[in-house]
Design a protein around this nucleic acid. Structure first.
Lengths: 253, 253
DNA sequence: CTTTAATGCGTAGACCATACGCAGAACTAG
DNA sequence: CTAGTTCTGCGTATGGTCTACGCATTAAAG
């Protein structure tokens, strides 16, 4: 009985199989001119250039000089293709934490790395993820995140929960940043003028009697200038890490 | 010069105008048989029944006994309709915090209330939100959230950031819970057997030498049984609130 | 009554994903 | 060398999507 690696078991989705490179080519038939990784790369190229909305089967096929239906020999469905795009879109994890870093600097770097990827490829946020991570690169990220918590006294389950918490925060922040970026582009205003314009619109809409606390925020000039998005990100991340620190202190005591 | 309420300024989107009920009907022409709120209610009904994917213009029109193109007299585009659906989908905020509650219990109730809404209407998570909140109900939620922080010494900007942090966490958690629910339904397994199946799949895929930390998590049996989703939610929320508590303590001192 | 404007909606166009079946290529068995 | 097998690429066709445009009808104003 092998302890891990077991060949049997319920069939895992074909898309996942190809992501792990477990597909042996049948010896018969013509040599494939298209490969699944070539298709996924082309799709990523299209998404990088023109956004996720531009990723249609025909567009990807055109990118490859092939016909639309040719893709279906390799990917099964468009959703499969999107799932595979997530894997190569994230790319490999930036590597394990330095051995002499404490958990907090390690996790901070881990969070910033994911944030950088999501800024570079905003379309990753628009792909509806269909389950817990099973693709190789995603698990690589998870492995490196767990590594940051190695020296802590946390039980394994809590390490996992914490990773979920941090990655969720990063995704959410990137989503918001991306939305205001897209929104400002759609409205035709400078990204820096977005928040002030928002504040002005709110001031015009809300009744101070119905929304007293909100009015106080507006009067404080919170929205008048856009503090760098990095500050906003750092603020939230530090709150979360403070909370984790409290837990670790509690588990240590 | 009015201090707030100013009629002039850059035209705000028609969809927003109708959400605030600022559209006066022109005195000419036939009486409208369709109203924008009637259309939005019908769309919400369809989404509640068959999911967001079922919300097409023709389907909503059928719900109303009208023709597809009739809707476009009132909503402008499907994206407009979706934006309006978010507003009525969330519904009114559950109300301000009790006056003698501290910020933590207030914010906890606020977070649970949003979570309840997102469990009831998972399709809210699939609507790509296109900017900061400007619809009436959304601002009601924000107002009540700010109210929870009234007694704290935090500056207004940080109150806002904290609300963003908490609501982001709630949305992210609901998204994950919803994804595993949909995933288990698609794979045909009981929702309770989802995590164990996931663990078994991981065990089959990963190489312990490449993924040592992940293997340790698996060996600890973390994924063997599904602890209630409420526990997972509470864990993350408590970490975040701990972090906020640390900030408040720091600002108080 | 005429003018004006807004409503409902039918038609049509431009996309989209994808089920199905056929032609040909490359291998194996005889 | 030939026949059989199997996989590749892809053309066609179907049913779905959103929505631009124009027309007939309705209701009020002058």
């Amino acid at each position: 009985m092998a302890e891990t690696k077991d060949d049997s078991g319920p069939a895992l989705p074909p898309a996942i199989e190809s992501a792990w490179g477990l597909r042996e080519r049948a010896p018969k038939g013509p040599r494939p001119g298209l490969t699944v990784s070539g298709i996924v790369d082309a799709a990523v190229r299209v998404a990088d250039a023109d956004g996720l909305a531009a990723v249609s089967m025909s567009r990807v096929a055109k990118e490859l000089g092939a016909a639309t239906m040719a893709l279906y020999r390799h990917v099964g469905s468009k959703d499969d293709l999107l799932t595979l795009m997530v894997d190569v879109g994230y790319g490999p994890s930036p590597g394990p934490a330095a051995p002499d870093d404490d958990w907090r600097t390690g996790l901070t770097r881990w969070a910033w790395a994911e944030r950088d990827v999501l800024r570079q490829r905003p379309w990753l946020l628009h792909i509806p993820i269909s389950g817990p991570p099973i693709t190789p690169q995603q698990l690589g990220w998870m492995e490196d995140g767990l590594g940051c918590l190695d020296g802590t006294p946390l039980p394994e389950g809590e390490k996992m929960s914490i990773l979920l918490l941090v990655t969720g925060y990063v995704r959410n922040d990137a989503m918001l940043a991306n939305q205001i970026a897209e929104g400002s582009r759609a409205a035709g205003v400078e990204p820096g003028d977005m928040m002030p314009a928002y504040g002005a619109m709110l001031a015009r809409l809300i009744d101070p009697a119905r929304f007293p606390a909100l009015t106080r925020v507006l009067d404080a000039g919170v929205l008048d200038q856009d503090d760098g998005p990095d500050d906003e990100f750092t603020f939230g991340l530090d709150r979360i890490l403070d909370g984790i620190e409290a837990l670790i202190a509690h588990r240590t005591a």
